[in-house]
Write a protein that binds this DNA or RNA. Structure first.
Lengths: 233, 233
DNA sequence: CAGTGGTCTAGACCACAAG
DNA sequence: TTGTGGTCTAGACCACTGG
């Protein structure tokens, strides 16, 4: 009879998951501390730490200094969604990407947008509406507000060929923000653009992007009927 | 003039991000290897590794053995969504949780479900429809198919008081699966349950759960109008 | 083949929070 | 106060993969 070896963090992790599945450790239970597990598994504490930290990140464990490590009561599933550049998303699916600008103007943002972006009252914003197509069929409508104070260069950019989505990713990359997913019923304007029925249920992503607490842009992406966003957990 | 110190991985990470923001390293650029950065920052290579690995996880860097570490061309945003237990989600918002079972029967799953769950033809499934309410208002409809082969105990569980969502989380926790987010237009059945107009756009989560490649359950959650799922990136 | 990231180790110190 | 996880270090070996 040979003892299994847990000499890498993935093996340790699998063993821990096995014990949780097998009810060796139940929901809410305190599990042994890192030092003891390291001794039991015959590996360094750092290896156990790596394994447990990874499980805590994915929501299976709750860890607190001094209090120890517990099996999570509610195994909060953490799904990681990838939000790609629209053009890339379409070409990756094997479709031909197309783009058109619908409108461009300067205007004050409507109150809900202004609140989300924490703008001064009456700030003049750049407002853009455009559409992305896959194999010539409407794919998503991009309605975007950009704060020129945050991106002065924006005034001289021509968005008739290049989408603001892509320009911003290239020029203001790696910024922070928040995202909301929801559903709406198509109004006439959107229905025309997406060539769908009025009232049809559409998937929506709202994203506000900041850098150092300054709001840069807020965008609503309204997807054509049937759009799905997938992930694994 | 004092040299800043990078003696912890967060500080190293911030410095790296600063250099990317500041265009010291541009998109697609190869950055110095871990050993060189460690020397420059005056810390151990493991510390640099921790920082860079974390950035790679969040999509800012692409790392490959031998090829080195590059600033990602497309900074794929990875949003982490937390999928809580429905009752917890509602009570956490400060609302009163309510639950009712609408129907329960045994039936063969319709083809789309059977395919997603990779079932044998004609497998008899348990089919449940129920509704979760917040402050007595409809919150989400749960339509669920459960494979009794995977969960024999299910036959004797009474779901008139406890939702399948909650029972499964408690009894079959920590399983893997995939999730799809989309939007639909309410049909009459759903509109009645959610007390909304027929055709209204509704947010939908489809989830299929597996354990060791065996499909356990597949659920569609149809949320009442106005539902939003938020996250940060 | 050789350079890079991936990981392990043994030991150490620190930060936090429960009692 | 003291036990726990969080992290750093210096060194080592390995796995992968580009040239």
């Amino acid at each position: 009879m040979t003892q299994p070896v847990f000499n890498n963090w993935q093996a340790v992790q699998e063993e821990v998951v096995r014990r949780i599945h097998g009810r060796v450790w139940n929901q809410g239970d305190l599990i042994p501390n890192e030092a003891d597990l390291a001794k039991e598994f015959g590996c360094a504490r750092a290896t156990v730490n790596r394994a447990l930290q990874s499980l805590a990140d994915s929501g299976l464990l709750d860890r607190k200094r001094k209090a120890g490590t517990r099996v999570a009561m509610f195994p909060v599933r953490k799904a990681t969604l990838e939000i790609p550049v629209i053009r890339k998303e379409i070409t990756d699916k094997g479709h031909t990407y197309g783009y058109a600008q619908i409108s461009r103007k300067r205007a004050a943002a409507p109150p809900p947008i202004a609140v989300k972006m924490a703008l001064q009252r009456g700030t003049k914003m750049l407002h853009l509406v455009c559409i992305h197509t896959a194999d010539l069929k409407p794919y998503v409508v991009e309605e975007r507000w950009i704060n020129p104070d945050a991106v002065p260069a924006i005034e001289s950019v021509d968005f008739s060929q290049l989408s603001p989505n892509e320009w911003l990713v290239k020029n203001i990359p790696y910024s922070a923000g928040d995202i909301t997913f929801s559903a709406i019923s198509a109004d006439k304007h959107v229905a025309d653009l997406l060539q769908c029925r009025i009232g049809e249920g559409l998937f929506v992503i709202d994203r506000t992007t900041r850098r150092d607490a300054q709001a840069i842009t807020s965008v609503r992406l309204v997807f054509a009927p049937g759009y799905q966003m997938n992930t694994t957990l």
